[in-house]
Simulated assay, not measured.
Amino acid sequence: MSRPLFVSQPLDESVRDRRRRRGLISAVITGAVLVHLAGLVVATAVVVARFYSQPKATFEIPREIRIPVLDREHKMTLARHEAVAPKPTFNDRLVSTRPTAFSLPEMPKLDMDQLLPLDPSQIISDQVSSLVGSSGLGSGMGNGGAGSGGMGGASLSFFGIKTEARRILLLFDVSGSVVNKAKASGVPLSRIKEETSELISKLPINCRYSIIQFVRNFKPFSEELVAASPTNKDLAHQWIETQWDESGMMPAGGQGVKSTIPNGLPFVLDYAFSLKPDTIFLISDGSFEQTTPTDGNRKVPGDEFEAQLKRLQSAAGKEVPIHFIGFQMRPEDNTTWRRLAQRSGGKFREMGR
């Protein structure tokens, strides 16, 4: 029995419909794959192109531009300022070009500082010290860059001990016993003042300095190391002549006297290192006493000074030479301070020997 012919047409339509759907799905999938492949190719090309392409030139300006100081030119500049000629003075009187019935008075005295250019030493004293801080102007007290720092080879001498430091601090023990021992050693107080004034007079303008007198309490010339300008030198000379303690006592209530408990040289050394000196001159007989709240009056042993100086040198971050100048020292004090001075890179000298 044969199939009816009218059934074949619906079957053909169904087959064609399924084929169209399959073709559409295949086209969509193929298009999506091609789009992804195209995107992958483009991304790969971009990455490869960035890798091989040269970066764009950029120009940046740093926030702070520092020009290194040239040592040679800087030394020449300092030399010119140190050798600057003194201010001119005017002695001329008023004169007349024709006779008069009266004589003219002398020209009144004027404050020439208001009329003449400023003294360069007064302008650059502070600036020079900051400019040469990082570049340096020479080698230190035998320690190079790690030592005290130089000042262009200008050597100074104090009681025969030479130094090239730029930040100098003088510590004077002015107790009665030290004054008497110094006089007995052939170094009276007048000579100590003379040596101190001479050292200050010779300081170049790029130096800073100060003076401290002490017994158990102490009296500083200044609260910080001051620039070696002509004005500060004059003030120091005046301070030496008028404020130098000659009584062997330094009461706590005195003018400019600093005091605390415990007192003595340990307290003075803590204050001295807070001024950040490059070198320290210590003048004494090597025997130091102090007052403490627990022990009362006592002599400070050498091992305590040794521990304190190690701590202070470590906190300073550099070796600060301590030059010791002594008078009629006891053998044990001589041994202690000779060792401490040498360990700090300083020199030891006992006067009268």
Rank of each mutant, 00 (worst) to 15 (best):
Q114C: 12
T100R: 15
A146P: 01
T100G: 13
L156I: 02
T97L: 15
N143G: 03
S129N: 13
I65W: 11
T89R: 07
D71M: 04
V84W: 11
R167N: 08
P117I: 12
A154N: 04
L169Y: 06
F90V: 14
D119I: 04
L169W: 08
K109S: 09
A165I: 04
A101N: 07
L156V: 01
H74C: 07
A154C: 02
E164D: 13
L104P: 00
D92K: 14
K75Q: 03
L131S: 00
L104I: 06
E60M: 06
D119L: 00
L169F: 07
V48K: 01
I67E: 05
R167K: 12
S148G: 06
L70W: 14
G145R: 15
L156N: 04
M112Q: 14
N143C: 09
M141K: 05
N91G: 03
L169P: 09
A49K: 09
S103K: 11
L70Q: 15
H74V: 06
P108L: 11
L94V: 12
I65Q: 14
S53A: 02
M141A: 07
L137Y: 08
I168K: 00
S53H: 00
F158C: 03
G136S: 03
T77H: 06
L78D: 00
A57R: 14
G145F: 12
A79Q: 10
R66S: 13
M151A: 01
K87E: 11
H81Q: 10
F102C: 07
I61A: 01
E106W: 01
M112Y: 11
F90M: 10
H74D: 05
S155G: 06
P62W: 14
T77C: 05
A57K: 12
A101M: 05
Q54M: 12
P62Q: 15
Q122P: 08
A165H: 00
A83P: 01
P117Q: 11
G144F: 13
M112A: 14
L104A: 02
E82Y: 06
Y52A: 15
A165Y: 00
A165G: 03
L78T: 01
I123Y: 00
S130W: 09
G144M: 12
L104G: 03
S53C: 03
H74T: 09
D71N: 01
K56H: 14
H81D: 10
S96P: 02
S135P: 02
G138T: 02
L104H: 05
L110G: 03
T89Y: 05
G149D: 07
M107A: 13
I123D: 07
R80L: 08
S125N: 09
A49S: 13
S53V: 03
L116F: 02
L104V: 04
P99H: 04
P99Y: 01
R166Q: 14
A83E: 10
Q122Y: 10
A79M: 02
T58C: 01
E64T: 12
G149P: 09
A49Q: 10
F158P: 02
M151Y: 01
L110S: 07
Q122V: 13
G160V: 07
E164V: 13
V132I: 11
A49P: 02
K162V: 10
Q122F: 13
I65M: 14
V132E: 11
G149Q: 07
V48C: 00
D111N: 15
E82K: 09
L115I: 06
L156R: 05
L115T: 07
S129T: 08
F158H: 07
F51V: 03
A49R: 10
N143H: 10
M76D: 15
D92V: 12
L137K: 10
K109F: 05
Q122M: 14
G152T: 02
S157M: 03
